[in-house]
Structures are given as C-alpha cells and as structure tokens.
C-alpha cells in the first residue's frame, strides 16, 4: 500500500463530488414535466465519484507509481519546476485585477513586458527588447481588434481620466 499523487487527486475529486452532489440538492425544481434540472448533473457526479473511487483504490494498490517521498517532490525541485508557470499565473492575476484601471492597452503592454522580463532576464539589452516587443505586439493586436474588428476593449480608468 502506498500514498502517491493519484491518491491525493482521487481524495480531492471525491471531496469535490461530495460538495457538488450536496449542492445539487439545492437546484430548484420548477415542477415542469420531463427531466428535472438536477437529474443530468447528478448522473455525471455519481459516475465521477465512482471513477474517482476506482482511481483511489488503484493508486493505493499500485506499487509502481511515484511515491510522495521521492526526491522529485522536495520543495526546492517543486519551486524550480513550477517557477515559470507560477510567474505566468501571478502576472495574469495582476493583469486581470488591474484591468479596470489600466485597460487592455496599457495593462496588456505592462503584462507582456513584465512577463518577458521575469522569464527572460533583467539585462539592459533585454529590457529594451522586451519593451519594444510588448509595445509593438500589443499595439498591433489592440489596433486590429479596436479598429479592424470593432471590438470595444476595456479602456481603463487611467485613459478615461486622461
């Protein structure tokens, strides 16, 4: 018997199913004839629970899967492995959080510049390149969508006040 990544994922999925099945009881029944609104999601969640349980049993019985205590899972390796992905997540959250203030044009330029610099490095030459790339690419995309496709992209409070 071993506990591995699949065990944790299966337990998480079972918890998720439990919460969702519980909230499916709150789905309103307007009393119309035919299939109830909760019927299909309940079927899907029940099947998902069964498959998660199968995954849990398989992961516990399995002897080959990567164990949680293996060297791959020490904190330094995990940090290095997910460093760039975490930077992307963080930058994207910041971009979305400030979208109302900065708008798509300024926010987009800052997002691309920030991400390029954090992923690519802080040398002067690179920073100049990154700023050129971010201004040109976002500028072109913003122009295509705003003037070509007539999409009203978020303007942002800064540009509105200005």
């Amino acid at each position: 018997m071993s506990i591995n990544k699949d065990t944790i994922v299966a337990i998480f999925l079972l918890l998720f199913c439990g919460i969702m099945i519980n909230s499916s009881f709150d789905i309103e029944d307007p009393g119309y004839q035919g299939m109830k609104a909760s019927f299909w999601p309940t079927i899907v969640l029940c099947l998902l629970s069964v498959m998660s349980l199968v995954m849990l049993i398989k992961s516990i019985v399995s002897t080959t899967d990567n164990n949680l205590n293996s060297e791959n899972t020490n904190s330094q390796n995990i940090f290095l492995k997910f460093k760039n992905a975490s930077i992307c997540f963080l930058m994207f959250i910041l971009f979305l959080a400030f979208l109302d203030y900065l708008g798509m044009l300024i926010g987009g330029v800052l997002f691309v510049f920030g991400l390029l610099t954090l992923l690519g490095g802080f040398e002067i030459k690179k920073i100049i390149n990154h700023s050129i790339i971010s201004i040109i690419t976002i500028g072109i995309m913003w122009s295509i969508f705003t003037f070509g496709l007539k999409v009203i992209l978020p303007e942002g409070e800064i540009l509105r006040i200005w």
């Binding site: 691309v112 790339i133 009203i152």
Partner: peptide
Amino acid sequence: YVLASVILAYCAIGVFALHNIV
C-alpha cells in the same frame, strides 16, 4: 518565452472579444 508571453496576452484579448465581458 517571447512567443508564449505575447500569445498569453493575445488569448486574453481574443477571449474578451467573444462576449465583451472580463
């Protein structure tokens, strides 16, 4: 990393254009 950064921003603009909602 250059391609990925630019395309991530492009994905955001493109997805917004679908229904004009953040």
